[in-house]
Amino acid sequence: MIEVVNLSKHYGDKKAVDGISFKAESGEILGFLGPNGAGKSTTMNILTGYISSTDGKALIDGIDILENPIKAKQKIGYLPEIPPLYVDMTVKEYLCYVYDLKKCKLPRNTHLADICRLVKIENVYNRIIKNLSKGYKQRVGLAQALVGNPPVLILDEPTVGLDPNQIIEIRTLIKKLGRNHTVILSSHILSEVQAVCDRIVVINQGKIVADDTAQNLATSLSSDHRLLVRIDGPKDEVEALIKGISGVEKVIVNTEVEKGVWEYRIEAEENVDIRRELFKRLAQRNWYLLSSRSYELSLEDIFLKLTMGEELSSAEKSKLGNKGGNK
């Protein structure tokens, strides 16, 4: 449905997007993940024809956005980072305008009513957009993208600035839309894309650093082989003891959280569960395991590792490095 081939965008010497390629099949929700300034919005702006690429191609349903922009744009509903709202209009006036602008053929009143019901803005339909809360404005922005029922939806950080309830609502809505639309959504929040997307493309400094299913990415990031434990016992000896357990790759002593109690970060080999062994050995020495939980490697950690040249553990490499679109 969407095919991006070797897309680049240069601003002078700066490469905002540097030769990225990916595909989104129809009916797929693709998450575009990356820190601020990674090139997410630039890519989306190219896909929607707002700016043009320096090099490469972007095809929407086989139509090149540069060669046949009007036909390609008809297939896209776009919610930019800042929703393009005319704040002096009422919601109704605005949506009617968008309906006209997109030369929509569907029956107007029922179509707009359906959209309003879907994004839950019926109760503000006759209010002036200026006076709406951020959450409602965002939803009007989403409604605007849905007008004309385009097969492709491109949503740039759709949940930014919303409260937790609204975030959950919008996520549910996007999931629902994903059943009969191809959705590309960008975010810098890992849990968000994990919750919503089928596939995740991680982008940094204009390059794709990972391209994988949400499930694979999730398991690589939250498995039992990383532990955060608090142990009441002499620091150095405890550290030595943990290191002695087979399968442990790395032990980092964090801080003394209470008097005599230290926090340790343990990384074990993949598929090795050291919790029972750890408990047993500590019990033998009469040291106390006060808490133990597995910690997730956050997106930020992955980024630091992927981009700052830090060493990835073997497990992460196999999960992230060799999959799909990594270049």
Binding site: N45, Y50, I70, K73, I76, Y78, P80, I82, V98, K103
Partner: peptide
């Protein structure tokens, strides 16, 4: 930033 809506419309 409403030009973003305008220029991405068909």
């Amino acid at each position: 930033k409403t030009d973003q809506g305008l220029l991405t419309a068909p």
